[in-house]
């Protein structure tokens, strides 16, 4: 948006809310095993907290929080976490994404699966957050056709 809502009140409100949303996002990701939630919902909440700052503060504030060029690597890392988890299972002789084969010592397959799900949820969360921010950034900046 070329003219963001840059009033101090809105910015203040956004700055107040944003960290709590972010914390809630992480909570949703990690508590997805016991209650509704998981990577996507948590990632979307994380993205929402960042987008809130971007909507309220414009580009200058946005740069302070997460730089635009950082979103692509974050998305790649998110996908990589998921992918690597699957590949490790293959390397240990199982099928792709067979968390029961993850090489974490001292764990039974059921707890390994518990851990595996947790790892991939974090990956999803990161990727979803980064990508939603990425889409927003690109959409706001627009295209230079002509």
């Amino acid at each position: 948006m070329n003219k963001p809502f840059q009033t101090p009140i809105v910015l203040l409100g956004a700055r107040l809310l944003s960290p709590y949303i972010m914390v809630f996002g992480w909570y949703v990701i990690f508590h997805g095993h016991y209650s509704p939630g998981g990577g996507f919902q948590g990632g979307a909440l994380l993205a929402a907290s960042i987008l809130l700052m971007r909507v309220a503060g414009g580009r200058t504030v946005a740069e302070l929080q997460i730089k635009e060029f950082a979103t692509t690597p974050l998305a790649v890392i998110g996908v990589m976490i998921y992918f690597a988890t699957g590949l490790v299972a293959v390397a240990m002789g199982g099928y792709f994404l067979d968390y029961g084969m993850l090489p974490i010592p001292g764990m039974e397959p059921d707890w390994l699966r518990y851990t595996g799900i947790l790892i991939i949820e974090v990956g999803i969360g990161l990727a979803v957050m980064a990508i939603l921010v990425m889409i927003y950034d690109n959409m706001v900046r627009g295209e230079d056709y002509g």
Binding site: M1, P36, G37, G38, F40, Q41, A44, L45, A47, A48, L51, V55, L132, I135, Y136, M139, V140
Partner: peptide, 22 residues
């Protein structure tokens, strides 16, 4: 509940923001 939560966060939240931007 999971679907509802997701729809609330993603459908109403993120999509709404993107819609406004568009």
């Amino acid at each position: 509940i999971d679907v509802g939560f997701t729809e609330a966060v993603i459908g109403a939240g993120v999509t709404g923001i993107l819609f406004v931007v568009v």
